[in-house]
């Protein structure tokens, strides 16, 4: 088995809610509430979940854009959790991020050349090499050198996302965290960007953490998939395993909601009742018990352990064995 590029141990991210006057009790939004996983070199790990489940926060914590409240992040064997901004800066060229919104993630006042060149300047690459590298990167992502002197507003969403990818690639990172890189794009463009990401992975031996809410996108690109619900991982396994035999009831519900492009197929949809509970006051025990069709008393009291039921198949559910069969 290949080595682990990234290990995440029980990270938590709590955001304090504004305290009310005179009230001493501090309350927190538990955006990420103790998740652990490992990412192997060269693989694509997807993190899926509905809006507000903490998947983007997880990405930002891994990028060290947010400081984890608790837990440990180990990158290539080095613990990077406690490092200050100055200490982490030189390491940043090892992991880069592609953002969700290609319209907001590029500075409208800079030309494409300046945008792509920026990481090179930040990491002290020679001026002479920079110009060549920019042209090279533009071509790698399917643009050309004539685009270098234009401004982001002159590009379509798909082209902008290509620019964002070129920027992330500039310093030859090992890990790219892609935070919903295609969800802001037209469906027709999505597949182009996904194929580009796949090609780049092969070419440069990249490792991806792919954050998404669209399961069909995830199915296309991932090696392994982690499903998140309310700040916790509920299931983590290989893609084929997850799509074939999901064990957690939440995963089952998610998969049953994926549209099937065949009107004659009668689908057996699992409709979840209710809304996602507030992460400020998550339900006791298993956080999913309020919406779980199989919930029992035990689920309300006891937090299920995130355990390896089969090889490479982790689930956080008390009744995974029974539900699986």
């Amino acid at each position: 088995m290949s080595q682990n590029l990234l290990e995440v141990h029980n990270i938590k991210k709590y955001f304090p809610i504004k305290k009310k006057l005179f009230s001493k009790k501090k309350e927190f939004i538990k955006a990420v509430d103790g998740i652990s996983f490992t990412v192997k070199k060269g693989e694509t790990l997807s993190i899926v979940g509905e809006s507000g489940c903490g998947k983007s926060t997880t990405g930002r914590v891994l990028m060290k854009l947010l400081e984890a409240t608790e837990g440990k992040i180990v990158f290539e064997g080095n613990d990077i959790t406690g490092l200050s901004d100055d200490e982490i800066r030189p390491l940043r060229k090892e992991f880069q991020m592609v953002f969700q919104d290609p319209y907001a993630s590029l500075n409208p006042r800079l030309t494409v050349k300046e945008i792509i060149e920026e990481p090179l300047i930040v990491h002290n690459i020679d001026k002479a090499k920079r110009a060549d590298r920019v042209v090279e990167l533009l071509e790698v992502v399917g643009l050309n050198k004539y685009h270098a002197n234009r401004y982001p507003h002159e590009f379509s969403g798909g082209q902008r996302q290509r620019i964002g990818i070129a920027r992330a690639l500039a310093v030859n990172p090992k890990l790219i965290i892609a935070d919903e890189p295609v969800s802001a794009l037209d469906v027709s463009i999505q597949s182009q960007i996904l194929n580009l990401l796949k090609d780049l992975q092969e070419k440069y031996d990249l490792t991806y953490i792919f954050i998404a809410h669209d399961l069909s996108v995830v199915e296309h690109i991932s090696d392994r998939v982690a499903v998140m619900y309310l700040g916790r991982l509920v299931e983590l396994t290989t893609r084929d395993e997850l799509f074939a035999t999901p064990l957690h009831p939440y995963t089952k519900a998610l998969l049953s909601a994926v549209p099937v492009p065949d009107p004659t197929v009668k689908r057996n949809r699992i409709i979840l009742k209710g809304d996602i509970p507030s992460p400020a006051a998550p339900p006791s025990g298993c956080t999913f018990h309020t919406r779980c069709p199989f919930a029992q008393d035990r689920c309300r009291e006891q937090i299920p352990e995130f355990r390896e039921i089969e090889k490479e198949h982790f689930v956080a559910c008390h009744f995974a064995e029974e539900l699986g069969s």
């Binding site: 854009l65 940043r92 060229k93 991020m97 907001a104 993630s105 990481p119 930040v122």
Partner: peptide
């Protein structure tokens, strides 16, 4: 804005982020 966050994630120093 997201582009400032993106610049931070690249590893730019505060002086560069503020100035550029």
């Amino acid at each position: 804005t997201l582009y400032v966050e993106a610049t931070k994630s690249i590893g730019a120093v505060p002086r560069r982020i503020i100035w550029k």
